[in-house]
């Protein structure tokens, strides 16, 4: 079972994730329309690129925008969650050992204490994000079962990962469960809202080009995000 999941299963899920995201990206860019979107994307490349980069940069910077600064609680949850969600899958020592063995390459591995903190961070922020959905009326009205499912799909590999990390219960069983959750997550990325892994950057670039080209970017320093 372990060999199946970390062999063909891993290849397949990573493959579906990457190919799926590639297709999503191509479809997104192909579907942009200068006249319908009312943005002259290609006519002013310099202003467009500048606007796109500014729009991404300030938003991936913790407290880099007015929106992040005015909602500090959400900002902390957001960044703790996302930093862990990006770093743990790629830079955890145990993952890199497996990558080396199964895929023939590996990334840099992070310190185990940092990894532990990040994993706990992801779980704690996921819990608070769920509570936030339940408690705040302005978020509750928007929340659907799908939103909770996405949150669960994202957090499940971390919960099971920590169970393995601390060797609670039957290690080999939880390791299998962990891998299954991880692979479900990978496969669901291109087909769900999790596609924002890529579409966040494209969408931010798009609105950045809108502001950079059309909505004042060529008039001064650009939008004070």
């Amino acid at each position: 079972m372990y060999n199946l999941l970390t062999g063909p299963g891993l290849w397949l899920s990573i493959g579906i994730c990457l190919v799926g995201l590639f297709v999503r990206g191509v479809l997104y860019v192909k579907g942009l329309n200068w006249q319908l979107d009312r943005v002259a994307y290609t006519a002013h490349p310099k202003a467009g690129i500048k606007g796109a980069l500014r729009s991404i940069f300030f938003w991936i910077l913790p407290f880099g925008t007015r929106s992040w600064r005015t909602q500090p609680f959400m900002t902390v949850l957001f960044f703790v969650f996302h930093i862990g969600a990006v770093c743990i899958p790629l830079f955890l020592y145990a993952h890199n050992m497996m990558f080396q063995e199964k895929l023939g390459f590996s990334f840099v591995s992070m310190n185990q204490t940092v990894a532990d903190m990040m994993s706990w961070g992801v779980i704690m922020s996921a819990i608070f994000l769920a509570i936030r959905r339940l408690v705040l009326p302005e978020v509750r009205i928007l929340s659907t079962p799908y939103d909770y499912l996405i949150l669960f799909l994202s957090a499940a590999p971390f919960i099971t990962g920590l169970i393995c990390r601390y060797e609670i219960g039957d290690y080999s069983f939880f390791l299998i469960v962990h891998i299954i959750f991880g692979e479900i997550l990978l496969i669901s990325i291109p087909f769900t809202k999790l596609s924002h892994i890529l579409l966040f950057f494209l969408s931010r670039a798009q609105i950045g080009m809108d502001f950079g080209i059309k909505r004042g970017g060529m008039k001064g320093k650009g939008m004070a995000w």
Binding site: G31, N33, M74, V139, L142, S195, F200
Partner: peptide
């Protein structure tokens, strides 16, 4: 097209 369609689909409902 993709801009508005994507906006509606990826809205994280974060409020």
């Amino acid at each position: 097209k993709s801009r508005i369609h994507t906006w509606l689909k990826i809205c994280a409902h974060c409020g």
